[in-house]
Amino acid sequence: MLKYLAYAKKAFLGRSAYRFDHLMGILSTCLQFFIFYEIYRALYGSGDSVDGITMSMVTTNFVLSLGLGAMFSPDDYYLPRRIWDGSISTELLRPISFPGRMIAENVGASCFNLIFKFVPVLLIAIFTTGMEKPAGAVSMILFIVSALLGYGVLWTISFLVQMTSFWLINIWSLITIKDVLVNVCSGKMIPLWFMPVWMTGILRFTPFEAIYFTPVQIYLGQLTMPEMLTKCAVQIVWIVILYLIGSILWKQGQKKLIVQGG
């Protein structure tokens, strides 16, 4: 466990070396937020709500999903980089689980982002816009749990995509497709309340709404207790399914390396 903590700490401290980069990250997240905010404010006009969804709920959706998005930033090139430069072979000889190290380093980076990206973005949004308060203490606690599980879903999607680099080598386009799907289908760009019914019906069978939309729904108190618990369970199921598929690919990828060389 100590070795994983050391890698997490290293990633945390490594981020702090790039101050300009993280300042730009805050700026970019705030910019995205205010653009979406202004677009939806114009769309709402003088109306209070659309289909029961108020402007403050939309604002809350953007603050939380963009804030969590800035905090959860899986390094999609962690494995591909090591396959390109050949250092994956050295990594395989180390007495440490490679996927474990991937998680540890990403958790370290996310902790840094929590403090230096998510919190500043949240504070800026709270003081400049009408963001909703959490629906209650239980909702707040379950929001935190669900947000962590949402991170798990996002990380396992990235893990799975990265594993394809054993065969595809250059997965830039695949990562771009993944990013588009995550941004659009998770409610980060368009709140899922406004999606057509047929589309939300499809999205219910994908892991995307479990990333940001589920925590937002819990935060706003839109779900009953059984629904909240069910949604959290669905998040766990997605994490398990995606991680299992990723692990199978990881094992097959290693086999490919040792049979065909790499």
Binding site: G86, S87, T90, L93
Partner: peptide, 13 residues
């Protein structure tokens, strides 16, 4: 890995 050390030229250790 704990008993074996490998340095392969061209591969970053």
């Amino acid at each position: 890995g704990t008993r074996l050390s490998v340095l392969i030229t061209g591969t970053k250790l």
